[in-house]
């Protein structure tokens, strides 16, 4: 039997990371700079909502992407001034780099002018999406 120290370090480190990971997934993070990049209907692929647009980036090796898509598509049904757009990250790498998308699913929240006001990584909860949308004027 050799030392248990490496095992203890890995489990402690991974537990700390895991708790942070679970807490931050789905969280809406407001953009710190006032003006994020402006996105247009041509870039996003669908018409922008008059109040807000949620733009989700997905990839093939991503289980929570599908759950996120189902949730957001369902939510916009009851919000006529909010639109939803879905982009495959792999086939839009140029855009992914420009917007600095690092993981999937990442959902950008755009205001009526197409300016990103914040984003959420991972599957957000319904209440988190509602709060994020409510904060966009």
């Amino acid at each position: 039997m050799k030392t248990l120290i490496p095992l203890a370090i890995v489990l402690a480190g991974a537990t700390g990371f895991g708790i942070w990971y679970q807490r931050t997934r789905g969280e809406f993070r407001k953009k710190k700079t006032v003006n994020g990049p402006t996105l247009t209907a041509a870039i996003v692929g669908t018409e922008l909502g008059s109040r807000a647009t949620m733009v989700q980036f997905s990839s093939a090796f991503c289980t929570p992407c599908r759950a996120t898509k189902v949730l957001l598509e369902d939510m916009v049904k009851t919000m006529p001034d909010v639109r939803y757009a879905h982009i495959d990250a792999e086939s839009h790498l140029e855009l992914v780099r420009k917007l600095d998308i690092r993981s999937t699913p990442t959902t950008l929240f755009l205001n009526g002018a197409g300016v990103e006001v914040g984003r959420a990584m991972g599957t957000p909860k319904r209440a988190q999406v509602q709060a994020a949308i409510a904060a966009i004027h």
């Binding site: 991974a14 537990t15 895991g18 708790i19 990971y21 679970q22 990839s59 093939a60 090796f61 991503c62 289980t63 929570p64 992407c65 990250a89 792999e90 992914v96 998308i101 690092r102 993981s103 999937t104 699913p105 991972g122």
Partner: peptide, 12 residues
């Protein structure tokens, strides 16, 4: 333990 999705974080 945390349902961590490696593909989500690494693939892109």
């Amino acid at each position: 333990a945390f349902n961590f999705c490696l593909g989500c974080e690494m693939y892109l």
